[in-house]
Design a protein around this nucleic acid. Sequence first.
DNA 1: AAAGGATCTTGACACTGTTAAGATCAATGC
DNA 2: GCATTGATCTTAACAGTGTCAAGATCCTTT
Lengths: 205, 205
Amino acid sequence: MQGKAAAVDRYHHGDLRAALIAEALDAVERLGPDRLSLRQLALAVGVSPAAAYHHFKDKRMLLAAVVAEGYCDFTALMRQLSRGADEPKERLARLGLAYLRFALARPQLFRLMQGPAFLGTDLPADLLTARGESGALLSDCVRDCLPGAGDAQIKTAVAAAWSLVHGMATLCNDGRLDALLDTGDLESATAAITRQLDVSRVLDR
Amino acid sequence: MQGKAAAVDRYHHGDLRAALIAEALDAVERLGPDRLSLRQLALAVGVSPAAAYHHFKDKRMLLAAVVAEGYCDFTALMRQLSRGADEPKERLARLGLAYLRFALARPQLFRLMQGPAFLGTDLPADLLTARGESGALLSDCVRDCLPGAGDAQIKTAVAAAWSLVHGMATLCNDGRLDALLDTGDLESATAAITRQLDVSRVLDR
DNA sequence: AAAGGATCTTGACACTGTTAAGATCAATGC
DNA sequence: GCATTGATCTTAACAGTGTCAAGATCCTTT
């Protein structure tokens, strides 16, 4: 009847906000963003259905906190996997791989993050900064790949790279590329695609 | 209190199934897939809340019918816009443009079509065939672009083209490329990206 | 005209997010 | 030490949702 941690059965939870976010993240990755109710969340944490409203304005805002944490993990993975790549081209490839790896490792969280409910600017600051950080990671890398290129060209290059990897991520995530690629071996799959598009040659120019 | 058509106030609606699908399509494009209730739909059509269950097993299945119609319009647009392009390369470009144009013209419907609820195989046959048709349209075109290529290479080429255009569509749709591209002028935007990726050269190969 | 099947309604159930009003606790100021 | 205050949580309720069983109504077939 009470939460997993089964803390002392006191009136005040202690750190309900963090507990709710953690439980929500777990539920999202287990059940998907849609079938996820605040009441079940509250039950799992061992608290009344209305308790969450003292820490979040909305169900949406609670999920926004989850999304923010997701973006933190996202950029962390990209940083980790791209560390140690001296050449910008190599780093860009690893960034894309990290993008895909994250999407396939945590598909439901990735879906939530791309959900249309978290696009506007009426969102917590940590979400906006976390998302901006991941975007800057890609932008900077592309800029390093195209030294001496104009701003417009860099922008289109960012758009191209982002679109390609994002499309792969979402399509893979939904199993729609299963008949076309070996989505189990991400490295060779992306290598085949970039080879097909001759990306490396473009980045050399 | 009654539907838009305001048909005679008789017990049997006449063609409730089609009316529900039409109203659902309208509501999806107006409000988005999420805030859309069967009850409001029934009210708008002038029928009781439970009436829909005599024509659809689920709310999901009603939306599946909407999605199927969406895919019909989708392939129709692709056919229309690619008509009259004799060279396969040119046809592929127009197919991609149609993909983008559809996504931006009917963003909410496009979102619904890509929703995770309509991925499995437990779906009405018309949806599956309509979706397969749109996929075949792309596959065949890519095959024509790469005469004499092996099956594996064609598959990766399809995956590459699809991923790129799908990523552009979803990102544009969510306004995430607004700072990078002029999404108002699709032609030049996609031209810039394909030039960046040197796609035409790859297709010449 | 009677039977039967398709279609729609009524009424209910079990949920959901959300809010207002009250209960409980921790900490602050005197 | 003790009352007050503000934060935190609960209770109870409201409006709305998808869904189903049982009954009403109509069309069609015989």
